[in-house]
């Protein structure tokens, strides 16, 4: 059941190194959040990239996926692939809804009152 029981000492050392790496990455991501990388989107990309590195370390080492049976990794990957699909199609949908995006929305003070009569007037 355990493929790497042969050397618990080495395993414990690996876990400790992983913890240190995770803590250092946390420090980096907090530090990076105080730096402005050109745009808000750039900061998001930096933060999420570091988060993904940390998540990968946790999954591969703490959750043993590195030395585990491949099927477990496949199931984990499938979860994320489907999440990616979900996110992608939602983004495409959002992008196509011009009226829903903030730059196209009227200043939200009063709700718009006359939207219905417009199409009728166009057909003349």
């Amino acid at each position: 059941m355990s493929e790497h029981t042969h050397n618990p000492k080495a395993e414990a050392a690996l876990y400790l190194k992983t913890l240190i790496a995770l803590l250092i990455l946390t420090g980096i991501t907090v530090g990076a959040s105080y730096i402005h990388f050109g745009s808000g989107a750039a900061n998001v990309v930096v933060a999420l990239t570091i988060a993904t590195i940390k998540a990968t370390l946790v999954a591969l080492i703490f959750m043993h996926l590195l030395h585990d049976k491949p099927v477990n990794g496949l199931i984990a990957a499938a979860g994320f692939v489907f999440l990616g699909l979900f996110l992608m199609f939602t983004l495409i949908d959002f992008d196509s809804r011009q009226d829903y995006q903030p730059r196209n929305m009227p200043a939200v003070v009063a709700p718009p009152t006359s939207t219905a009569p417009a199409p009728a007037a166009e057909h003349k």
């Binding site: 907090v30 990076a32 959040s33 999420l48 998540a55």
Partner: peptide, 12 residues
């Protein structure tokens, strides 16, 4: 939490 933390606390 690794994802929740940057998304909520760090991005601004």
């Amino acid at each position: 939490w690794i994802y929740l933390f940057p998304l909520y606390y760090l991005i601004s």
